[in-house]
Design a protein around this nucleic acid. Sequence first.
DNA 1: TTCTAAATTGAATATGATTATCACTGTTAA
DNA 2: TTAACAGTGATAATCATATTCAATTTAGAA
Lengths: 159, 159
Amino acid sequence: MEHRIERIKKQLHSQSYKLTPQREATVRVLLENEEDHLSAEDVYLLVKEKAPEIGLATVYRTLELLSELKVVDKINFGDGVSRYDLRKEGAEHFHHHLVCIECGSVEEIEEDLLGDVEKLVEGQWGFQVKDHRLTFHGICRVCQKQAVAASASEGNEEN
Amino acid sequence: MEHRIERIKKQLHSQSYKLTPQREATVRVLLENEEDHLSAEDVYLLVKEKAPEIGLATVYRTLELLSELKVVDKINFGDGVSRYDLRKEGAEHFHHHLVCIECGSVEEIEEDLLGDVEKLVEGQWGFQVKDHRLTFHGICRVCQKQAVAASASEGNEEN
DNA sequence: TTCTAAATTGAATATGATTATCACTGTTAA
DNA sequence: TTAACAGTGATAATCATATTCAATTTAGAA
Ligand SMILES: [Zn+2]
Ligand SMILES: [Zn+2]
Ligand SMILES: [Zn+2]
Ligand SMILES: [Zn+2]
């Protein structure tokens, strides 16, 4: 954790930005909730627990800055809010997401998966790929099981 | 065109929705601008040219409805507005996009490309894929050429 | 055709996320 | 020390989208 903060600090400094206490608090919240996909409001509320004096505008500004520096990726799952996702250490591309249309859960895929597709796009469409967004919408493992269970008990009730 | 409108009409009726003049005008605008990626506001302005009495709320409602019926796909390229994209005739999945980070142009890829990846996701992650969103961000062909030209003339100026 | 209930509409208003403004504070470097 | 200047928090402004509601339209039933 400290190591990653140190790294982000250097990245900020290299563009003559400072790692202020507010920015550090924000980054810590992102690191502590790496598995989640927090909205700006979510981050704000979590940061407030530790640094109650922080303002919402500062959180937005910090997230925007981290986004420009590619420390976080801004993503939109179609529910009207932007969400902020830390890049994995050393990851070249943004990771992928599995969004369940039943329960709304979001799972991550860190494997690249798109290597071949990107080669194809570069070769066949002449498009120089810099990054991507890939999200699958479907039914997660849990909801699939529940659907099976529900249809089974439904069958019983009919008897 | 008429054929596709007829089909959408049936799809609406099958869920006891009506193809009102406002809805038809909206669908026509989408069909006539199939290659674009229009926002609700864009659609509104275009529909107004032919049916000036239409209200913005109706356009939003229509696009939302068409979205539920899977006639259009709602997509977000990260610029703060939702865009609406007609499904290709008979397409099972949403098509892909190439967004240029230089000029903002959006190109479409209709080829599936993700068949193998989806099989992997279903098999290895147990996730039942229903749909996807895939967008590549990078440099389009035109901007690549311009970059080459610019760096060449820059080299000349230095002499 | 006439009638009726339900669906749909437009204008206006409300909402909710994000951004801009601005006076103030802390930091930096001559 | 002091004069830029980056950064901040509170607030107001903006902008996309959703909701409300009275009025209109529509598809069937009678
Ligand atoms: Zn689920
Ligand atoms: Zn993620
Ligand atoms: Zn371009
Ligand atoms: Zn498209």
